[in-house]
Design a protein around this nucleic acid. Structure first.
Lengths: 349, 349
DNA sequence: TTGTAGGCGTTATCAT
DNA sequence: ATGATAACGCCTACAA
């Protein structure tokens, strides 16, 4: 409609005032005569005037854009991890309410692509006011550079030790603990685990929770009961195969992710081991759908929406400087969801 | 590192040339003496110079940013639809390779928030060169305004009839057809369906494919065999309950989404109806995990990665003007994935 | 209350 | 091959 992209100068001319006045009127300054403002705003609406974000950012030095690095499933291109996407949804909603949009970094060559791929550079190029990192490699040297900079950034499941940095994550230790405790309460004594990637914080923490729980419960830790995985289904499948072939196989398996848990269930089914009759399984995440499958999966629910909102909140606080440094990691509670994949162990031990 | 955000002027001063020369050197113009260029580029690297996208966009009138409207699960806040996220992943990868980043629109008040919420306005505000729409309401008046504008836009599962618009989607009709044909080949004659939202293109097309298949197979269409759903699990559950309570219940159900298919399976299980022994179920999507559940779900696979790449491709073509108008809808093939939830019908009819 | 003008960081068009 | 300089669209002192 109308003649495309009106700018503030034309608006000024048409409303018979200067650009300064138009700007002040539109931006809600008080020193503008009501009638003048009204006239300007009406015209702006009629002409469908939209200020150019680039120009404003240039002049204001604020972009009202937040960056997002979402490196999901690089090593597993066919099995995208849905967890971060769910977090992204609520992150989007929360920052939107605060008037921010999200820049999802895709191109590895900001500007003209000279210089190495760099998180920090891409942020500066687009002048984002802060950024969220999800699923990125913790020890990538480029991440380290970002950490040393003072650009506000929050990591999801990723703690960064630097100025204006923060992290949000679930209480993974406690979650794993609850999973094991639940199994123990059901009567299990031979409880194994399939871990996540050990160089990620959730992977390490869930294993720690598992060990802590065993200790507290007086169960004794056995090396052969921990199978190292990578969060993906295939790892759960392989781990279960190995675990069930043990001389003294476990009666229960705590998998550090739902996908691995489903892999465990599948592997069990293949060997004629019934879940939960012969083997109990507890997962982690509470991905959508796992409540619908047979058997419905008992799992530790992460509050993905809460994580996204917390990330938004933390990042905005960092940006508004209303945050002491260093900022403590935000840890969200998890909740054991009892469904049908965990039950008392078979009577015959 | 170094003293934060160097700009082209400082770079010019330090390398002893004018800003014009720096700009030309960095942007690879030929009319720059090799030694000069080398000196400038080295300095730029040392100082970690990054051009400001906003300034460049202002001057160039190209932002190298593409917009994304991802309205996922507004009505179903607890059950985010993962389909679009998988598409988003490959979209991101594809546009990234072309040097674009993605702006995920979150805020409803671009600029100063005067005027109504508007897709078009948000695009113009950020000067995106084109935009992708996923999961948005087809008949939202604001979408209509976007459609009438000549901003390049492609819809995923959404056809827009306007200048520089395009759509990508799976071959939903054919997919539904294949599902029904598969069931028919297995011996089923009483085949019901649970539809998706009828005001979406995929919802309508999958129902059409179902009807077409019945006709072609000479099966005869029965009103009571189509239950109207909304793509979500609960709808599948409710539909199955109704369908199975029929006087002459179907022996097979084609659900227009995997989530509904799982709802169907769950409802069946509750009534003691076994899948696939007593009831065959075929879904649509091939969401991750549905191959792992019990029974592994037979379904029609959508090529989500292909959809994202196609959307990127189409949008870039629209932007580069190398696209006749109107642009034909891109339809991607689907593939029936036979797993275990569909089998021959029980012998006793 | 309003107008003027400088500046934000680049690119691009002229000269030279 | 390089240097000035005018846009690009907006905000914001400062003046009036």
């Amino acid at each position: 409609m109308t003649g495309q992209n009106v700018n503030i100068r034309q608006l000024a001319k048409l409303s018979g005032v200067s650009v300064g006045t138009v700007s002040r009127a539109l931006n809600g300054y008080s020193d503008v005569r009501p009638e003048t403002r009204e006239r300007i705003m009406r015209l702006a609406r009629e002409l469908d005037y939209t200020p150019a974000a680039a120009a404003r950012a240039l002049s204001t030095r604020r972009s009202h854009v937040l960056g997002v690095f979402l490196d999901t499933g690089e090593g597993h291109p066919d099995l995208r991890h849905p967890f971060f996407h769910e977090v992204l949804d609520s992150l989007k909603a929360a920052v939107g309410r605060a008037g921010y949009d999200l820049l999802l970094f895709a191109s590895e060559r900001p500007g003209n692509g000279y210089g190495p791929h760099s998180y920090l550079k891409r942020c500066r190029h687009h002048n984002v006011e802060g950024t969220v990192l999800m699923g990125v490699e913790p020890d990538d040297p480029e991440v380290q550079r970002l950490i040393r900079s003072d650009l506000p950034a929050v990591g999801v499941d990723l703690v960064m030790d630097g100025p204006r940095k923060c992290a949000v994550m679930s209480d993974n230790v406690e979650g794993a603990r609850q999973a094991v405790a639940h199994l123990h309460a059901l009567g299990h004594r031979r409880i194994a685990t399939v871990t996540g990637l050990m160089d990620t914080r959730p992977g390490a923490d869930r294993l720690r929770g598992y060990r802590d729980a065993l200790r507290d419960l007086g169960l004794g830790f056995r090396d052969e009961y921990v199978a190292y995985g990578d969060f993906y289904a295939e790892a759960g499948h392989a781990a279960a195969a190995a675990l069930l072939a043990l001389e003294e196989p476990p009666t229960a398996i705590f998998a550090a992710s739902d996908m691995m848990a489903l892999g465990v269930v599948a592997a069990a089914a293949e060997r004629g081991v019934r879940v939960p009759d012969d083997l109990s399984v507890v997962g982690f995440d509470d991905m959508q759908l796992v409540g619908l499958v047979q058997p419905p999966l008992t799992t530790v629910r992460q509050d993905k929406a809460g994580l996204g909102a917390a990330a938004a909140h933390a990042l905005l606080a960092l940006i508004d400087e209303e945050a002491e440094d260093p900022q403590p990691t935000v840890t969200l509670p998890v909740e054991l969801v009892e469904r049908a994949s965990a039950a008392p162990p078979p009577a015959t031990t």
